[in-house]
Design a protein around this nucleic acid. Sequence first.
DNA 1: GGATATATGTCAACAATGCTGACGTATATG
DNA 2: CATATACGTCAGCATTGTTGACATATATCC
Lengths: 162, 162
Amino acid sequence: MSNSQTVVNPLFLRDEDLRQAIELLFFAYRDFTKRADAILADQHMGRAHHRVVYFVGRHPGISVSELLEILAITKQSLSRVLSHLVREGYIVQKTGTADRRQRLLHLTEKGRKLEVDLTTEQRARIAAAYKTAGAVAVEGFRKVTLGIMDPAARQRFAPGDG
Amino acid sequence: MSNSQTVVNPLFLRDEDLRQAIELLFFAYRDFTKRADAILADQHMGRAHHRVVYFVGRHPGISVSELLEILAITKQSLSRVLSHLVREGYIVQKTGTADRRQRLLHLTEKGRKLEVDLTTEQRARIAAAYKTAGAVAVEGFRKVTLGIMDPAARQRFAPGDG
DNA sequence: GGATATATGTCAACAATGCTGACGTATATG
DNA sequence: CATATACGTCAGCATTGTTGACATATATCC
């Protein structure tokens, strides 16, 4: 029965280890977002704009409600940045064909360019970290971050889904 | 076109892999901070208060300038939350003995209790993720997050450097 | 076809948390 | 004694989250 090392395992989780994990997450995230935040500030935008542009780029034709679920914020909070991005020509809204109540979101060329500007450095950061750490470490990073997030979010990464 | 295979390496870093890493980080961080944020909101505080309480608990007697370096914010931003925490009795400031200009920070009992309240769920989250993922994965998570952060921050985790 | 639910948008007010700029005090150091 | 450093504070501004209320268009159910 104890053939699964996920239950009985050789991990000694000292307080120090847990604290270190908290700090790894904090410093990695802090530095990961720094450069994009600076670019955004130059254009009178913030991290919220980045997230919208990123996920619309990731899921072209995403509905507002799907986007709300990903971001886990209120529609009023989203509305502020989304309407700004539409007004400034980064995003276009297309009425859904199956459901005409929906406003399906797409990046414009301008929006695509912004997305690239913002994530180029982030991608390079990840690529460098992945290369230095190696394939086994990458799989470990994947497992642990998936374990940290809520099960609902975890499903987004299920194989053969999305 | 973003051709991500321009560098030859054993890792095939497709655009998809890099995007996934960005999202793993986003969802893990989003859910990791959610519960603590809710507790803080009940007490008219925010994530900034948590960070101060956390790092003061982590480094008793830390100076204001050291704390500023960790948080990477301005002293004016820190001042707002720090003076609130001192005023409300979560943190005490002790004049440095070697350098009397310094205001060395310590948690009070009340501050210690808050810190525990805020991080208990976070620790449990990490512990569960670590146990499920296993020791090898934990080492991978460590390597990758260290690779993502700036070299300056990485040094904080250097062996033999408390 | 009319009642009801859903998708989306908007106005208003408020709080937390970054920022810049300017200025002040105490203490250390050359 | 001059200057630098550690820390604090006041003021103003932008971003981004919240709650609450209300409006419109479209879908769906009986």
